[in-house]
Nucleic acid binder design. Structure first.
Lengths: 337, 337
DNA sequence: CTGAAAGCGCTTACAG
DNA sequence: CTGAAAGCGCTTACAG
């Protein structure tokens, strides 16, 4: 980096003090219009660009928020980023983006980077394997507000914004019931993820409300690998009374399940209805797909999380714990074409 | 932000000077092992976390590189990020990530943010509509190195890293020729994008090498919208001698083209072979897809761009223009299942 | 309305 | 091996 123009350089040229130059550029009301104009003119012609590092340092604010996400390949994290970006942009904040790649050790080292860089706030989705939250408690110690999104933290004294999983699962299941299905299976995510339990809960509630008894033989747990999904599907299809509809944890599982049926039970393919969470962009090109999917509004999740975060940053009460918020964004059921 | 522990606090406690504490933590060889140990022990027990803002300011380095990308929804940009991240991580650099959302005005404001924040280097993919590069020339003025990726800058005096589009297009076309096609169409991207021209060039070279005359009736330009692709396809299919194979600019176009055939020319669907650029993640679930695709190694593009950038950052010769590099990453032809 | 001065938390050349 | 001091570029309470 070359050295840039400084306030001092301009002060010298204009025969005024550094303070006056600084105040002029900051539109301080104490400065005369004439002086302001002179300063601004010079700044313009010299291409003065303020050194933000110096400001950050002086003001003890970085005007930066940290973002820790597991993996940007999952497109919903990108949507969340866009929501966050919208709010951060308005506040003139920058975003330091990092990925944990689902590795808790990487997550730990990122957390320290964030603290060292004195981000003014943090938004994070923890890894699938994060169970120890003492890491994130450090932010409280140093007074940096943290909002968790999408992945529910295992410890519930953190602020958390996500979609309403229970409600979404309820709707997805209810949709199948309204289509006159009664043998409805659920392929759920790993029980270690709180979201899996929330969606399972919605499934149960929908059955209950419609007086359909819960049959645990129809509930299978997978880890998102194709192999596990195939195993789950095989188990379901081998039942004396196999399901006529399946609500799965998410799109990816549905696609593997459908691929399995295509391969092993092609004649059943058309007669089994799927619902799930997610809306993959390539859906329109698929010949076989879920009849309906829950569209998760991750843009809104990101936006709300950022709004919440800036409330905390701007209220600036580091010692006073405002309690933890828990925001659930409603999600919509989309009937696929 | 609460105030954290400072070097001064620790110096006082240990009855030594701030310089000694600083040097100890930085493992300065002039400091005795004993002193270092004492300092580090206290730092540990007090949970000292260095204030990077202060370091950055003092050292006149931000240890941050800026990233300007058009849109993270395009998954190849995410791959590029991962490549960049790998290198930046090793150098202990942070990444400020921004999206231009294909808007040159947004791009301009981002550029200023980057300069204000004194990033040590920048990696950018310009918007589809960027024609004026004076914006990016500002970085040269202030001595911040810039590498362009993926989107070739309209002005060729910038360093640029991308995949080898000419070679990829050559291979994709050649693959069709080897399959004994001779009526091979090309649906190209907008001529305003240099990449479109590069891929068209590869197409022409493959034809030429195989002594197939170029027939401009077989070449159509689209803007990536479904409507335009349909129009292009209709034109091709209405030819007296329609193509038996089509090389398209990218996956998305192929999918729209196939959807068009399904709708309007279902009987021709099976007999037309497609090749293109890109490898969409959902490919395995599609019933109709290109016979082969060029896999662009964007991870490597990002990695190489970052390596180049850090060479420039670390060599630290802001005045000396090292000339512009142009790196082309080879890409592989993948036969789809 | 303007300016002198202190200070944010570090690093580093220099002196001892 | 350790320390005193300067200084990075800003902002801001205070004095005039």
């Amino acid at each position: 980096m070359k050295k840039g123009i400084t306030l001092k350089d301009m002060a010298k040229k204009l025969n005024m003090s550094v303070s006056t130059v600084s105040k002029s550029l900051n539109n301080d009301h104490a400065i005369s219009a004439f002086t302001k104009a002179r300063v601004k003119e010079l700044a313009e012609s010299w291409n003065y660009v303020a050194n933000e590092s110096a400001r950050h340092f002086k003001l003890n604010k970085s005007f930066t928020i940290g973002l820790i996400l597991p993996d940007l390949q999952d497109h919903f994290f990108v949507e969340a980023i866009n929501g966050i970006e919208e709010v951060a942009g308005k506040e003139n904040y920058n975003i330091i983006l990092t990925q944990s790649h689902e590795d808790p050790r990487k997550e730990e080292s990122i957390v320290h980077v964030m603290i060292r860089n004195r981000v003014d706030g943090l938004i994070a989705a923890v890894t699938k394997h994060t169970i120890d939250m003492t890491l994130f408690e450090k932010f409280r110690t140093v007074g940096i507000p943290v909002i968790h999104i999408v992945r529910e933290p295992p410890n519930d004294c953190f602020s958390y914004v996500s979609v309403n999983n229970v409600e979404g699962a309820f709707r997805a299941t209810n949709f199948l019931i309204k289509k006159r299905h009664s043998r409805i299976a659920h392929i759920m995510g790993p029980q270690t993820m709180p979201i899996s339990l929330a969606r399972f809960e919605g499934y149960k509630q929908a059955l209950h409300k419609n007086r359909i008894p819960l049959d645990m033989a129809l509930v299978r747990e997978v880890d998102f690998s194709e192999r596990e999904t195939e195993k789950a599907m095989l188990g379901l299809m081998k039942l004396k009374s196999p399901p006529t509809a399946i609500f799965t944890f998410k799109n990816d599982i549905t696609l593997d399940a459908i691929a399995f049926l295509k391969k092993k039970y092609p004649r059943r393919l058309a007669s089994i209805d799927f619902t799930d969470f997610g809306t993959l962009p390539l859906f329109k090109y698929l010949d076989h797909k879920p009849v309906a999917s829950i569209e998760e509004n991750f843009y809104e999740v990101g936006r709300q999380a950022a709004i919440l975060l800036f409330d905390m940053i701007n209220e600036n009460k580091p010692d006073h714990d405002p309690g933890h918020s828990n925001i659930q964004i409603p999600c919509e059921l989309i009937v696929n074409r």
